[in-house]
């Protein structure tokens, strides 16, 4: 049974309030497909029943689960390919040159989803920058969803997920097989620090960082929230630090202090 306008508007309002994420009209199918499995998990027959339960406002855990279900995004290893080429050839070498005295590099993947991005970054570093083995390297990965963070911690991926974007040589080197599941080896998993962060709410204490990966997450926020997040991100960066956004996202026309840089197809943003 298709969801009604009332149910859609309720979910839309809830997600806006809890996560500052805007679900556009026309995405009713998305609400239904994401929430029906959750409704069934709770023994409910429909999304309508789920909305009725939510309306009672006495089950914060259910609210959290709805937010998580609605904000889980598609991801893959080395997503879009060229940003990782730019990281390898330009962004990380520049950061290494700038930080060679302190020998410290702090990276923050701010919308880590199920972990493919930070693991891609960890593999890229191990493969291309062996000198960082003697540095203090931190890869902090955060997400709004506890479920996604647990997936990141576990490092377990199915066959289709490891098919997506991951060179097979890296699959052989950094994963072990368990039937049709592939599990990230411990030395790579140990490189990640996992934190729960809602980008639209006040951020918990985080260190000053050299590189922020905030790709394909701003698209879900309204303009006011986007600007606020980008300002916070600027404050979080060290001088000469770099922000990477998704290909359709930008800081341009937001009256922010970032310096736009270009490397081949990639635009990225520096704090000078």
């Amino acid at each position: 049974m298709a969801i009604t306008h009332r149910e859609f508007d309720y979910i839309k309002g809830l997600i806006k309030q809890e996560a500052a994420i805007v679900i556009d009209t026309g995405k009713e199918y998305l609400v239904e497909s994401r929430l029906m499995p959750l409704a069934q998990k709770h023994g409910l027959a429909s999304v309508k029943d789920l909305v009725d339960n939510l309306s009672k406002r006495d089950n914060q855990q259910l609210v959290t689960q709805v937010v998580e279900a609605m904000t889980t995004n598609e991801t893959s290893f080395f997503r879009d390919f060229y940003p990782f080429e730019a990281l390898k050839k330009k962004v990380i070498p520049d950061l290494i040159a700038n930080r060679s005295a302190a020998k410290e590099l702090v990276i923050w993947c701010a919308a880590t989803s199920s972990g493919q991005e930070p693991y891609s970054l960890a593999m890229l570093i191990k493969e291309n920058f062996p000198q960082l083995a003697t540095w203090r390297l931190r890869i902090i990965c955060s997400d709004i969803s506890e479920e996604m963070l647990e997936r990141t911690r576990s490092g377990v991926y199915n066959q289709l997920e490891v098919n997506r974007g991951l060179p097979v040589s890296l699959l052989m080197k950094y994963f072990k097989q368990d039937g049709t599941r592939w599990i990230v080896k411990d030395d790579l998993r140990r490189m990640l620090e996992v934190r729960l962060v809602n980008l639209a709410a006040p951020w918990p204490h985080l260190p000053q960082v050299d590189l922020i990966m905030m790709r394909n997450v701003l698209i879900y926020f309204d303009q006011v929230t986007k600007v606020s997040i980008l300002k916070h991100a600027y404050d979080q960066l060290k001088v000469n630090g770099v922000l990477l956004l998704g290909s359709t996202e930008t800081t341009i026309n937001m009256n922010l202090s970032y310096q736009v840089q270009q490397y081949e197809k990639l635009s990225y943003y520096s704090k000078l």
Binding site: S76, F78, F81, Q159, N163
Partner: peptide
């Protein structure tokens, strides 16, 4: 040079070619 495990989606093949 590369390895795709069936079943696959279009994106899998396209990403492997890009690699």
């Amino acid at each position: 040079n590369e390895y795709v495990m069936k079943p696959f989606t279009d994106e899998v093949i396209l990403e492997k070619l890009e690699m």
